[in-house]
């Protein structure tokens, strides 16, 4: 459960690799309203980068004309919710895709979901073959955190 939404942003963009940096920069800028630490900002940038990359590579097979949706919600109690959604080919076996050793692309090491699971408190992946994938991540930014 997450508390009420204080602020939110939602936008669509084409599945072009050059938009990955734009998406993570937007997420970082928006999340900074919560007075995050630098480490938390870096982690949020990374998970957005991984989720959007997954949509482009796996959802759309690197096609440039797909649509990726990024939605960020800032909840009460300093909780951030990030949703990345595509209308691509979907994931047939989500359990397998979430495994640390699993990768259908050797050069990416299969670490995308590992980072999302490591840096966010909750990760939910819903997908339908032929319709797309929705990744929802939640993290609570607690007080008393250490800067590095």
């Amino acid at each position: 459960m997450v508390a009420g939404v204080k602020n939110w942003v939602r936008f669509d963009f084409p599945s072009r690799p050059e938009n990955i940096s734009f998406a993570r920069a937007c997420a970082a800028a928006f999340a900074s309203q919560l007075d995050c630490t630098l480490e938390e900002i870096e982690e949020l940038k990374l998970v957005v980068s991984e989720a959007v990359s997954n949509s482009i590579i796996h959802g759309y097979d690197k096609r440039l004309d797909g649509i990726v949706t990024l939605e960020i919600k800032l909840h009460e109690e300093k909780t951030i919710e990030i949703i990345v959604e595509d209308r691509g080919r979907g994931i047939a076996d989500i359990e397998q895709a979430l495994q640390p050793t699993y990768s259908s692309m050797e050069d990416r090491m299969g670490l995308g979901f590992v980072f999302m699971q490591s840096f966010m408190e909750d990760l939910q992946v819903t997908s339908e073959v032929g319709s797309g994938t929705r990744v929802r991540m939640i993290k609570s930014l607690l007080p008393g955190r250490e800067e590095y």
Binding site: L46, M105, M109, G110, L111
Partner: peptide
């Protein structure tokens, strides 16, 4: 900044 695509480049 580096993500898993960058790590893949390094490991490759």
């Amino acid at each position: 900044f580096i993500d898993s695509s960058g790590l893949g480049f390094i490991l490759g």
